[in-house]
C-alpha cells in the first residue's frame, strides 16, 4: 500500500467519523469545570518542591549567621553551604522559567519537541552532577551543623565522624555509579537520539 492509497483510506475514515461522532457537550463542560487544566506537570511539581526546600534551608542558614564566628573551620563551611543554597534557589528559579516557557499551544511541533528534549537533557545531567557534588556539600555541612548543634569544633571530634563518612561515601559512590549508568545509558542516550532525530528533520 502506497502513501497515496493510504490517503484515500484516510479520507474514508474521515467520512466515517463525520457520520458517527457527536460531541458529548456535557462531558466537555464537566471536564472544563473541574479546572483540571491547572494540573502541574511532575517536573514542575518537583521543581517547586526543591525550590521550597532550598529556600527554607537558605533562610535557616541566613538567620543562623549570627552564630558564625571568624574561625576558619566554621566560616568557610558556612560560606560554602550558603553559596550552595543560594545557587540552588537561583537554579530552581531558572529551571521553572524554562519549564514555564514550554508552550505547547502556539509553538510548532518541532520547536516544542526540541525544547522539551533539551530540558530533559538538562534535568538528566543535573541529576548526575548533583550526585557528584553531594559529598562536597556534606563535607561543608557537617562542620557547620556540628558547631551549631553542639557548640564545639568539628575538627576536634573528626575521628568520630570518619567511619560514618567512609561508609556513607562508599554507599554514595555505588549509588552515584548506578544512577549514572541508569541515567546515561538509558535516559541521556535516548534524549540525545531524539535530538538528533529532530535535527535531521529540520535539515533539508
Amino acid at each position: 500500500m502506497e502513501l497515496e492509497n493510504m490517503k484515500t483510506l484516510w479520507q474514508e475514515y474521515d467520512k466515517n467519523l463525520q457520520a458517527n461522532t457527536i460531541l458529548n457537550e456535557r462531558m466537555v463542560k464537566n471536564m472544563l469545570a473541574e479546572k483540571s487544566n491547572e494540573r502541574l506537570s511532575s517536573f514542575t511539581k518537583m521543581e517547586y518542591a526543591s525550590l521550597t526546600l532550598a529556600g527554607i534551608l537558605l533562610a535557616i542558614f541566613v538567620s543562623m549567621g549570627y552564630k558564625v564566628n571568624s574561625e576558619m573551620q566554621v566560616l568557610i563551611p558556612y560560606i560554602v553551604s550558603l553559596t550552595y543554597f543560594t545557587f540552588a534557589v537561583g537554579w530552581s528559579i531558572y529551571k521553572l522559567r524554562l519549564l514555564n516557557n514550554v508552550d505547547t499551544y502556539s509553538d510548532t511541533i518541532v520547536s516544542t519537541r526540541e525544547r522539551v528534549e533539551k530540558l530533559r537533557l538538562l534535568f538528566a545531567r543535573e541529576k548526575v552532577w548533583s550526585m557528584i557534588l553531594m559529598p562536597f556539600l556534606m563535607c561543608s555541612l557537617a562542620p557547620i551543623l556540628h558547631y551549631w548543634l553542639w557548640d564545639s569544633y568539628f575538627l576536634d571530634h573528626y575521628m568520630a565522624y570518619v567511619p560514618r563518612f567512609v561508609v556513607g561515601y562508599g554507599l554514595f559512590v555505588v549509588l552515584t555509579y548506578w544512577l549514572y549508568q541508569t541515567l546515561y545509558s538509558k535516559n541521556i542516550k535516548i534524549i540525545l537520539r531524539n535530538l538528533e532525530e529532530i535535527e535531521a528533520l529540520k535539515k533539508e
Binding site: L9, E12, N16, T21, N30, M31
Partner: peptide, 19 residues
C-alpha cells in the same frame, strides 16, 4: 474525573478494517 469517560470511537472503516 467524577464521570468516568470512555469515548465511543467509531469503527475505523467497516469493511476495510484490515486495510
Amino acid at each position: 474525573y467524577e464521570e468516568s469517560i470512555l469515548l465511543n470511537f467509531p469503527d475505523p472503516l467497516g469493511g476495510d478494517e484490515e486495510q
